[in-house]
């Protein structure tokens, strides 16, 4: 028990505020989502409107409709809102000069984080859902961004062609299928609609080995979304035994700084029960341990 006495006390009372002709008109307009300013004697515009300007002159009573958009003249970030603040999440108090006016309005800006606040930034009013003729009819201001979200969502089907299908069906069985046009004699993996040298389809399917030569490669060191391996890792061109051009795949099972051009590699397959119609049935290629292929033997594939 404390030596000092203390008891809670609430001072609470709802006053009745006479609004007068100028402020009353302004607040009434807010109910309808309309923002207005008042003309001063010397031709300026004030929003919120005042009955008397800073020189003590009565304003004219002429109202001007304004766009609910303005510029932040000064601001402060409130990381922990207090009771009575208009927002229950971090926000900014700001002095906002509504376009076409000569004064500034105190209000709040819902900006998520202080980084998005800047003196001179453009803000627009967000109207409260229920309005009752108070300044809180403007729920808050929010940043005006010079861009719009442009969502696109389209649903497509993907249907591989007959040659690529043959390749995918092979993968499902753990085989690498290539195609050959007898006129050219070159084996392409996957098979192609047209041999580049003859223009004929590579319709004679042949199975090629899952071993080959790593011709060239890169070590990927940047992280990016959807990555399967943790950088650094290797991505390279492999000329499979029995094929006449490289396929591209991941190289692993060896420290990346020991990867060499000419290295003999073999596919590391996923467990058979996980095989699908996908080249990803092969997790990566790994060294076979055989001696490297001489440079001249794969130079034509670079």
């Amino acid at each position: 028990m404390s030596d000092f006495l203390s008891a809670p006390y609430v001072l609470q009372y709802t006053y009745t505020r006479s609004t007068g002709p100028v402020i009353g008109r302004f607040l009434e307009s807010l109910r309808y989502g309309v923002l207005e300013g008042v003309r001063t004697a010397d031709g300026g515009v004030l929003c919120p409107p005042l009955e008397y300007d800073e020189k003590g002159e009565a304003t004219t009573g002429e109202f001007i409709q304004l766009r609910p958009v303005g510029t932040v003249k000064s601001w402060t970030w409130v990381p922990e809102p207090r009771k009575g603040h208009p927002l229950d999440r971090p926000f900014a108090f700001a002095l906002i000069q509504i376009d076409g006016t000569d004064n500034a309005m105190v209000h709040v800006v819902d900006a998520e984080k202080p980084k998005r606040m800047k003196t001179g930034m453009r803000v627009r009013a967000r109207w409260a859902e229920e309005r009752n003729g108070t300044i809180r009819d403007i729920a808050c201001f929010e940043p005006v961004l010079p861009y719009l979200p442009g969502p696109v969502h389209l649903d497509y089907d993907v249907r591989p062609g007959q040659h690529y299908t043959a390749f995918l069906r092979g993968l499902q069985e753990g085989k690498l299928i290539g195609g050959c046009d007898s006129q050219s004699g070159k084996v392409y993996v996957p098979p192609r609609a047209a041999d580049p040298f003859t223009g004929n389809p590579t319709s004679e399917y042949v199975e090629v080995a899952d071993t080959g030569v790593l011709t060239t490669f890169t070590i990927i060191r940047i992280p990016f979304e959807g990555q399967k391996l943790k950088p650094p890792y290797c991505f390279g061109a492999i000329v499979l035994d029995g094929a006449d051009m490289p396929i591209y795949h991941l190289i692993s099972g060896v420290p990346y700084d020991q990867i060499r051009m000419g290295m003999r590699v073999k596919a590391k397959w996923k467990p058979r029960e996980e095989w699908e119609t996908s080249l990803e049935n092969i997790l990566y290629f790994e060294p076979t341990g055989e001696p490297d292929a001489p440079f001249e033997s794969y130079e034509e594939h670079l």
Binding site: L168, F217, T218, K228, F235, M261
Partner: peptide, 19 residues
């Protein structure tokens, strides 16, 4: 059906540069 293996254009061109 397309393997997602590579990171952007650099992943394609880096092996060429090595060559």
């Amino acid at each position: 059906f397309q393997p997602q293996l590579v990171a952007g254009a650099g992943g394609y061109f880096a092996p060429l540069i090595r060559s």
